[in-house]
Design a protein around this nucleic acid. Structure first.
Lengths: 151, 151
DNA sequence: CGAGCATAGTTGTATATGCAACCTTCGTCC
DNA sequence: GGACGAAGGTTGCATATACAACTATGCTCG
């Protein structure tokens, strides 16, 4: 095969690869939220964790990871950073292997403070995806969440 | 506000946040492709760059970054790693500020070799997203690519 | 020509991500 | 009770991501 020869398969990968599209969309959407939240010193990655723990009330890292489909070591270090900032804390439980995460008062204040910025970003993202796009991803993520991922 | 009080807004964020969904989907889909490609020592993040350069033929880092909606410093370091592995290389151009990236013979061999693994992952991803999901994200990404992003 | 702005990449720093290997604790089964 | 496997987290390592600041080159206009 010469250097200049076209390879139909590679062009098909370039056009069709779902991972490529999902990852590109991830970069674009994350940038929108991070920009809106920047003034508050928060990133959407951390806001997701904070909101998830908030809704669960008190939850083990494992439970949060399953809900977010996030690898346990990734979550472990994200939680470290958020504990260092005082937005999350952990309490011991009867099971010595785990802990219960909870949102601190400072974390709740932060969530209230950033709501408007989040809302602005959400509107921009909804515009980009369109109604169908939002419905599609909502359905897909719901189906992913129902399955029991490897803890 | 007491610690136990529910906050409707936070629950709405948890249910509806588009970034949260996109990021979760990104983790799930990336894992599928990375697992399929692992035996070949390639990750989908790098395969995307390789395929993009391959299709463009010879392209500046800026052009590749625009096509992938990827920040220039991110791409710069990804390219470094791929040059170190011998899959990509760069040639000087008339404009001393930039270079032309191109896929090496080893890079082309690699792409041919991983095609089947990619295809398997693509099928699994297509199943998870469904026809509507794939159409939705394809349309969204196309609309993002048309706009001229900040290089 | 030369000053100043624009364009293109690189580097410093921080965060996010995940695999492998590890450590602890729990539960089970003799 | 003790061995052993399972469950839950943490740590070592590598990669991916992006903002800010910086460098170098090109371009424009007077």
């Amino acid at each position: 095969m010469s250097a200049g020869e076209r390879d139909e398969r590679i062009e098909a990968v370039s056009r069709e690869c779902i991972a490529n599209k999902v990852r590109l969309l991830n970069r674009a959407v994350t940038a929108i939220y991070d920009e809106a939240l920047r003034l508050h010193g928060l990133k959407i990655s951390q806001m997701s964790v904070l909101v998830t723990v908030s809704v669960l009330g008190r939850a083990s890292p494992g439970a949060v990871g399953r809900k977010l489909h996030m690898e346990k070591s990734t979550l472990s270090r994200n939680v470290d950073r958020m504990r260092a900032r005082g937005w999350l804390d952990a309490a011991a439980t009867e099971d010595g292997r785990t802990t219960e995460l909870f949102v601190t008062a400072a974390g709740r204040r932060l969530l209230r403070k950033v709501y408007r910025a989040w809302s602005t970003a959400q509107e921009r993202a909804a515009e980009i995806l369109g109604e169908q796009g939002v419905r599609g991803i909502t359905r897909t993520v719901a189906s992913l969440t129902e399955r029991r991922p490897a803890g």
